[in-house]
């Protein structure tokens, strides 16, 4: 088969592009540790969340040095807790579930974003860097008050966080 030199170049370039895409994604997953949110967390009974060890008392708890876990319950039309305060430069794992219908847990303007399904627990781990404030929104239409469903995530400097715990 007689393929023109330029055509070979075009074919090779498109292959390089595809390989480059795959390499970038692989680097993101392996090198940077970027993960997907899956359904690997154990399921819960959405009608009896108050009997669940984590969701009975939703909020922030320290599980290690610079490691925190946050249990969040989404309901029509609010999040519990409504304000999540975590320290900067730490690893924070959110466990989010819903009591009624499908919601979402979206830290606005960031890549932290998941669906929240009744009975399922969405677990996502993020690394906080600098202090700052983020809005949390529901982006799955969940009813007439959907537009009011919001919470706040506040990343405070580490020394200030110790004060708030006392």
């Amino acid at each position: 088969m007689n393929i023109h030199t330029y055509e070979k170049f075009w074919l090779a370039a498109s292959m390089v592009l595809i390989v480059g895409f795959i390499l970038t994604i692989t680097y993101g997953a392996v090198g940077l540790g970027i993960a997907m949110i899956d359904d690997s967390s154990p399921t819960v009974d959405p009608d009896n969340l108050d009997e669940h060890p984590g969701f009975a008392d939703p909020g922030v708890e320290q599980v290690g040095e610079n490691e925190y876990e946050v249990h969040v319950i989404a309901v029509q039309f609010a999040y519990f807790p409504n304000e999540i305060v975590v320290p900067a430069d730490s690893t924070v794992t959110f466990h989010v579930t819903s009591e009624d219908v499908i919601h979402s847990f979206s830290v606005v303007g960031t890549n932290a974003n998941t669906m929240v399904i009744p009975g399922e627990v969405a677990s996502l781990t993020v690394e906080t860097d600098d202090p700052g404030e983020y809005g949390i929104l529901c982006n799955e239409y969940c009813g007439v008050g959907h537009h009011d469903m919001e919470a706040r995530l506040v990343v405070v400097p580490q020394d200030e966080f110790e004060l708030e715990v006392e």
Binding site: A29, G33, I34, T128
Partner: peptide, 21 residues
Amino acid sequence: WIFMYFVEFVGNDLTVVGVIG
């Protein structure tokens, strides 16, 4: 592609991290 992945996506903290599996 470089701009979208490394600036818009990776630079957009907070990013979900963890172990694949």
